[in-house]
Every structure is written in structure tokens, then in C-alpha cells.
């Protein structure tokens, strides 16, 4: 009793425990390190890209200077990633729901395992698959789309004869980001407290209604954060896009023709070996823009998620 009292008094001069101190130092260091790395990357990009900013417009590849060079790449990057997300996110929600609420336990485990495996497949493999299998397979459907739904700008055509279109690229990217999105959402759905599912069922909810009232609202922020992770991956994906997409530059929403905008990452991979001088600086400048886009995407995601926590407070 008295020794506790003494401790408490001494405690005012905050006893320093060496192990605690050391560990605290290590964790702080790790936290600072990540900031330093991030700042370092940004600084590198800025310094290396600088010559491209100040170079005369004629020296930049293409015509019309840096902005006109990068803007179509930005457009292509955003288009491919957004399309992939639109395709993958709803499917990921459905798969996660199936795994957590419909599938028998064995099947659920197996499926979860397969999904995780999908995430581990190197992107070059997805690229090869997209190029050799998926691209030819899209020829018939895209031909049909161009003929029958050609009035929609997305399917204006004429349909590409190789299938190496924005459409195929988005499909490949969708498959690639599906596992990560599914994994995040599945985790959240698994953690939906039984408490709330029971509350819904006790009111006479069917299983679907229970999912709508008690599971999806919980998963809301996880659907968002999973999607943002997926979007991040789709924005930066390089090899698969470089292999699948036959790019000709230009800005178009036409997804199935042979004239497709390139993406920043794939463009860097394809052009870098053959570039020199200011052209390299221009590529790095486009990389800087990609870096900025991913940062902004993540910040928006955080903001949205934070705003929603108001109503998701666990009680």
C-alpha cells in the first residue's frame, strides 16, 4: 500500500523505463521514416521533372508542350481506372456478401482463399492473359456493341480488330483490383456484429432485408476504402496496361475503337527505354502528376470516410 503511494509520488517525475523509451523511439522513427520517404519521392520527382517544365514547347515529345503531352495521359489513366472500378466494385460487394452470408462455411473458406490467391498473381500474367485470351474474346461483343449501341458515345466504334482496347484494358484492370476490394469488404462484413443482424431478423426481415439494414450500412466505409485501394492500384498499374492497350494518344470516350488514350504508367514503361534528354524529364513530369492524382484520391477517400464515422459509432 505505502509503496504504491510512494510510486505515485515518484510518478510525478515520470519514471522512465528504458525498454518503453527505446520502443517508443523505434516506433516514432518508423513513423517519421515513412514521411521522409514520401517527401523524398516527391522531391525526386520535382527535381527530375523540372527541366521539362522550363523547356521550350518544341522539345517536348508530341506537339504543343508539356500540358498537351500529359493531359491525354491523365485522361486515359482516369478513364481506365474509373471504368475498372465501376466494373469491379459492385461485383466485389456481391462476392463479399456471398462469402460472408450465403455460402456454406467450406465453400466460403475456399472462395476466400482463391480471392487472396488472385491478388498474388503478378500483373504481367494478367497482361499476357488480357492480350492473348481476353482481347480476342472481346471482338464479337464489341462488334455487336458498335453495330447496335453505336449511338452511345462509349460504343461509337468502329470496333477494333485486335481487341486491344480501353474496354479490354478496363476489364483486365477490374479483374486485377477485384481481390483487394473484395478482401477489404469481406473483412468488414465478417465483423458486422451479430447483434444488429439479429435485431433486423427479429423485426421480420428476410435475409436480403437484413443485409440491407444491418450489413451494408456497416460495410459502407469499407466499400469506399476498398474501392479507393482498388482505384489506387488501377491508376498505377503498368505492365498489364502496357501489354494489353494499343494506345494512339488522343482523348476519346470511345472504348472499343483502335484509337485509345494511353495511361501515364504504361506510357512511361513503354517510352522510357527509347527516350533521352527532355523526353525523359517529360515522362518524369507525368509520373509526378500520377503521384499527385493518387495522393488526391486517397485524401478524398479519407475525407469521405471520416465524414461518415459520425453515424457509424459503435455503441
Amino acid at each position: 500500500m505505502s509503496s504504491i503511494g510512494q510510486d505515485a509520488v515518484q510518478g510525478r517525475r515520470a519514471r522512465k523505463r528504458p525498454a518503453d523509451q527505446a520502443f517508443r523511439g523505434i516506433t516514432t522513427g518508423a513513423g517519421v521514416l515513412i514521411l521522409v520517404v514520401l517527401a523524398g519521392v516527391a522531391a525526386f520527382l520535382l527535381i527530375e521533372a523540372w527541366p521539362a517544365f522550363v523547356a521550350p514547347a518544341e522539345e517536348i515529345p508530341g506537339e504543343g508542350g508539356l500540358v498537351l503531352y500529359i493531359w491525354p495521359l491523365v485522361f486515359g489513366t482516369l478513364l481506365a481506372a474509373a471504368l475498372a472500378l465501376v466494373l469491379a466494385a459492385p461485383l466485389a460487394v456481391l462476392i463479399a456478401l456471398f462469402i460472408t452470408h450465403y455460402a456454406p462455411r467450406r465453400l466460403a473458406q475456399l472462395l476466400g482463399y482463391v480471392i487472396d490467391l488472385l491478388a498474388a498473381v503478378p500483373s504481367i500474367i494478367y497482361g499476357l492473359w488480357g492480350f492473348t485470351v481476353l482481347a480476342p474474346a472481346t471482338l464479337t461483343p464489341t462488334g455487336w456493341l458498335a453495330e447496335n449501341l453505336g449511338f452511345i458515345p462509349l460504343f461509337a466504334g468502329p470496333a477494333s480488330t485486335t481487341g486491344r482496347t480501353m474496354f479490354t484494358t478496363a476489364l483486365v484492370l477490374a479483374v486485377m483490383i477485384l481481390p483487394i476490394i473484395t478482401a477489404v469488404i469481406r473483412e468488414a462484413f465478417l465483423q458486422t456484429p451479430k447483434l444488429y443482424e439479429e435485431a433486423a431478423l427479429a423485426l421480420g426481415a428476410t435475409r436480403l432485408e437484413m443485409i440491407r439494414t444491418a450489413v451494408l450500412p456497416f460495410g459502407g466505409s469499407s466499400i469506399l476504402s476498398g474501392s479507393m485501394l482498388g482505384l489506387g492500384r488501377a491508376l498505377g498499374e503498368t505492365m498489364a496496361v502496357a501489354i494489353v492497350l494499343s494506345a494512339s494518344g488522343g482523348i476519346t470516350f470511345n472504348l472499343i475503337s483502335s484509337g485509345n488514350p494511353a495511361t501515364i504508367a504504361a506510357n512511361i514503361a513503354l517510352e522510357f527505354p527509347e527516350s533521352s534528354g527532355v523526353a525523359i524529364d517529360a515522362l518524369i513530369a507525368s509520373g509526378l502528376v500520377l503521384f499527385a492524382i493518387t495522393l488526391v484520391v486517397n485524401m478524398i477517400a479519407r475525407a469521405v470516410i471520416n465524414r461518415r464515422t459520425d453515424f457509424s459509432g459503435a455503441s
Binding site: A199, G204, S312
Partner: peptide, 20 residues
Amino acid sequence: VDVRKHVGMVFQRPNPFPTM
């Protein structure tokens, strides 16, 4: 589902839907 519409339940731990 019909049974539960007629026979309601209140649980040990209060469980209002937190998102609502």
C-alpha cells in the same frame, strides 16, 4: 420471417442500428 413479424424480440444488449 412471418413468425418473427408476430413475435418480436428485445435483446440483452441494447442494439439500435448505429447507422440510423
